[in-house]
Amino acid sequence: MKSTSSFWVTSVSSITAGDIFIRGYAMQDLVGRVPFTAIAYLLLRGKLPSPGEARMMDVICSSILDYGLQKSGTIAARAVASVNPRMNAGLAAGVLGAGDFAVSPEPTGRFIKDGYAEYKASGAPLERFADDYVANLRAAKQRVPGFGHPVFRNVDPRAEKLKALAKECGVWGEVNDWYGAIHVAFRKAANKPDLVMNDVGMLAGIMAQMGFTPAEMEGLALLSTFPGLIAHVSEELRTGAINRIVADENAHYAIETRDLEKDLSVAGWA
């Protein structure tokens, strides 16, 4: 990027009198020729994807889609839409439901990025490094993201499908092998042979291998949830329900009636 004194500098896109340019390519040339997910890859990575990378982008953007009412973001989106009946309001609320404990692969992405860099700098054999690394994590009582599931044991079928597709698309690599070795070492050290690598962990590993940053991983996960969020907000708007609240039978109010005058006196009020 050329040096400039301008306040804003971007290489993502530009607008001229004749067209919009995405990473230097005319929008009119891209639309209808290059699929949406391939253009998304171009926007993020700054280069056109290979056919395999483009297909994997489609897989990534199809990997979450919707968790129904079991996702806090869906409930937030519908509740907000019931009092502010606009699509953008519901979507904004739904986006905030992604974080360290739901939807977002960013924490796993950070773990993989930092750990893999440490492995490359160490020069140690992979299996030995993984054993030592996991031992240090366990000694520090540090959580390893991307492992475990409340239902699946031994294998998470969603993760295995992602792995097979990544290999088929030619985007499986050393980063994935490193994270897989950490998984094996962790199961051995924790004596949990049935502990799975879950779909979020697998996604993070694949996206790390493809060169995406942890922050971009969260953005792509959110992009994957948007069709489901749009459908839920649209359904909510069609119901005409107003002001969704927690019904009294679903809440316990741990509040006792108190004597204001007495308590004011105790607190020293005249």
Score class of each variant (00 low, 15 high):
L43W: 01
S72P: 02
L91M: 14
P35E: 10
E118P: 00
K120W: 01
T74Q: 07
D114A: 13
D100Y: 12
K71L: 06
L96P: 00
S122R: 06
K47V: 04
Y116V: 00
V103F: 05
G68H: 07
Y119D: 06
Y67Q: 13
R45A: 04
L42G: 01
Q70K: 12
S72Y: 05
G99F: 07
L42P: 01
F21S: 13
E106V: 10
T37D: 15
E127M: 08
I60E: 10
A98V: 05
I75F: 07
V95S: 11
M56V: 04
R86K: 12
P105V: 07
L91C: 03
G73C: 10
F21R: 15
L44W: 04
S82L: 08
M27V: 01
A17W: 05
R78Y: 04
G109C: 09
Y25F: 14
R23S: 02
I60T: 11
A77G: 03
L30R: 10
N84R: 07
D19C: 05
R33S: 09
A89C: 15
S82M: 06
G24V: 03
D114E: 15
P51F: 03
L96Q: 11
M87A: 02
A89N: 14
R45W: 02
G109H: 08
L69N: 09
A26K: 15
P49N: 02
